[in-house]
């Protein structure tokens, strides 16, 4: 399929889905409306809601809050994950002692932590950041741990024979290997940072995209819920594109950069 045909087909899917949605919510079929507008709204209302948000400018504040929370969660979670991942990989005894607790914590559905974090950190951005951190941390931690553990012994021996000391091995062998594993999971960890922020906002906040959706839901404003969902997916796609750009730059040495 050529690029033009592909694009055409992709656009057609959106057009058809939107048209059917609009039709079933406004035009009665056999005297009955199949999708009651109260529960399903309709594309035109949703679209006008989005336009209203952007033209009045209220959305920017919420977007900025969610973005800021996601960035903080990603950075803090990644730094902690890298440090602990390195530490555990280089100290197998420490790793062995903490192993059951790491597994236990990771098995916990993170949403249940939200109330605790709200109590500890309040309803501001930090409770959302904390939720995102618990998600990002484990992904980065497991990947860095794996990356340090699975350095090829030949490459390591080569480094030693070339005269590297422990510090130089760390810098030239372990570190790049761990980073490459971390970057290969960049899409997942960035995605989870956003999930943490939005879920946190949904469960209790004063601003952010999750808060916007939760507010709309509270007054049965279905158009508002859908509008919030669309803005959120556009937001995530933009972030994902930015990640792809970063990844292309950082992993040039890799045989194939994984396409998202």
């Amino acid at each position: 399929m050529s690029r033009v045909t592909l694009l055409f087909c992709q656009v057609m899917v959106a057009v058809i889905v939107l048209a059917l949605w609009q039709a079933f919510t406004t035009v009665p079929v056999f005297g009955r409306i199949l999708l009651p507008p109260f529960f399903f709204s309709n594309p035109i209302d949703v679209f006008s809601q989005i336009v209203k948000w952007f033209s009045s400018g209220v959305i920017w504040k919420h977007l900025a809050i969610t973005l800021w929370e996601s960035i903080l969660a990603f950075v803090i979670g990644s730094v902690a994950g890298i440090l602990v991942g390195f530490w555990f990989a280089r100290q197998p005894r420490v790793a062995a002692v903490f192993d059951p607790y790491v597994k236990m914590t990771n098995a916990l559905p993170r949403v249940v932590l939200a109330p605790i974090f709200a109590l500890w950190f309040g309803l501001g951005i930090w409770s959302k950041v904390a939720l995102g951190v618990t998600l990002v941390f484990f992904i980065v931690f497991f990947n860095v741990y794996q990356g340090v553990k699975e350095v090829s012994t030949t490459v390591l021996d080569n480094g030693r024979m070339l005269g590297m000391n422990e510090r130089q091995l760390m810098r030239h062998v372990y570190w790049p290997s761990a980073l490459s594993w971390m970057f290969s999971s960049l899409h997942t960890s960035v995605g989870f940072a956003v999930v943490g922020a939005v879920v946190g906002e949904y469960l209790g906040a004063a601003a952010g995209l999750g808060y916007l959706i939760q507010q709309a839901e509270g007054v049965f404003d279905v158009a508002g819920v859908f509008a919030g969902m669309f803005v959120l997916s556009a937001f995530v796609i933009l972030i994902d594109m930015a990640v792809t750009l970063v990844e292309r730059r950082l992993l040039v040495w890799r045989p194939t950069v994984r396409e998202s």
């Binding site: 490459v155 005269g163 790049p176």
Partner: peptide
Amino acid sequence: RDAGYLFQADALFPWKTAIDNVAIGLEIK
């Protein structure tokens, strides 16, 4: 420390370019 070792398996640092792979031996000294 007097020996250079050429391995059977691939032992180059995959994250370094050819020239960086060669230069590293001097840089760490």
